[in-house]
Design a protein around this nucleic acid. Structure first.
Lengths: 184, 184
DNA sequence: ATCTCTAAAGTGGTCAGACCAATTAAACAG
DNA sequence: CTGTTTAATTGGTCTGACCACTTTAGAGAT
């Protein structure tokens, strides 16, 4: 019944990755040409290209028009296990989400200058955890930072409805911030 | 007969993304078929597939064999879409990228415990800016953090080939870290 | 009419061959 | 040996076809 097509997308990626390891390629080396890979792996060139494009997106290989396909620098190559696994499985640990949020907010806390206006705004949002954290992060004028925080936070709120900090913690944070902003 | 090859990979992704927005598709909706997209966007189906595969890898769309291509639930991993949009459209301020990287790396610097092994690993990568920063960030075992940093860093390296820190700065960072790790 | 089941249409997945565009290596003239 | 030109190599795109899976519409039975 099944299967004249013995290849699948993920299998092809594995094949190429195995070939990279087996050939003992080092960063900077050139991979076999797409036509050569197609014949070696017994798959069509279109499939080879889709697999290479995926590897390119993962930062594992780099293609140069007319030049060839090259193995990226080693630091990117080390991401293979983490990134490919991450993307394929699409599973994120809830603890990673919480930790990421805490890290970003602590970063904002230490980077944003505690002007009286900001301290006042933060104090007025002391009661509501979500508003408090948002107010804190928005002190950073970095749009990229804010958007990343927003999306991570949205994901967090979609899975966990509890507060990230207790009222006591928020109060303590605010006090620390106020002291820094008002020396003496 | 043959077209003009007026399309490029990144342009095609933007086209499809624009089409998603223009059609006001919501998560769960089905996109037009690959053949239909090819005709609408005046590109070959192979190019449509490569673009869709990229969007699939980014967690934006999901393909079902025989069923169609669907817009993913945006609540999950939407941060990837944000990052991909930055990458594709390249409309992000370069200063935001650099600042974001510095913030994330400073975060790793302050959060990761400077064990002798880590200090040694960092020292061995002191010469190469890229490796140094990667080694620093990988101290955090948070996969989400690493993934986000990787995406931002990849975009940075795609636009700027210079070092993020000078050798002096890296040396200073390492020394500070070493002192913290080895209290008197 | 309604229900069930089957066949056709629709859609993603793969393949094959061709041509275009950019790079690289070889051939050539000086 | 050097610089230029030419041919071969390689990635990028296009076209059309067929396969595998899903959905749907229609025929047939109740």
């Amino acid at each position: 019944m099944h299967g004249k097509h013995a290849s699948s997308f993920h299998e092809n990626i594995s094949k190429i990755r195995s070939l990279i390891v087996q050939a003992a390629l080092v960063p900077g080396d050139r991979l076999p040409s797409e036509r050569e890979l197609a014949e070696t792996l017994s798959i069509s060139r279109a499939s080879v290209r889709e697999a290479l494009r995926a590897l390119s997106f993962l930062g594992i290989v780099e293609t140069r028009h007319g030049g060839g396909t090259f193995l990226c620098e080693q630091d990117r190559h080390r991401y293979i296990e983490i990134l490919s696994e991450f993307i394929v499985t699409k599973q994120t640990k809830a603890t990673d989400i919480v930790e990421m949020l805490r890290l970003l907010e602590r970063l904002a806390f230490s980077e944003v200058e505690p002007t009286p206006e900001r301290v006042q705004a933060l104090e007025s949002n002391l009661e509501v955890d979500r508003l408090f954290r948002q107010q804190l992060v928005f002190g950073l004028k970095n749009e990229l930072f804010i958007r990343i925080w927003s999306e991570v936070n949205r994901f967090y709120e979609g899975t966990d409805t509890g507060d990230l900090y207790t009222l006591e913690e928020r109060t303590e944070l605010l006090e620390m911030w106020r002291k820094v902003g008002m020396p003496e």
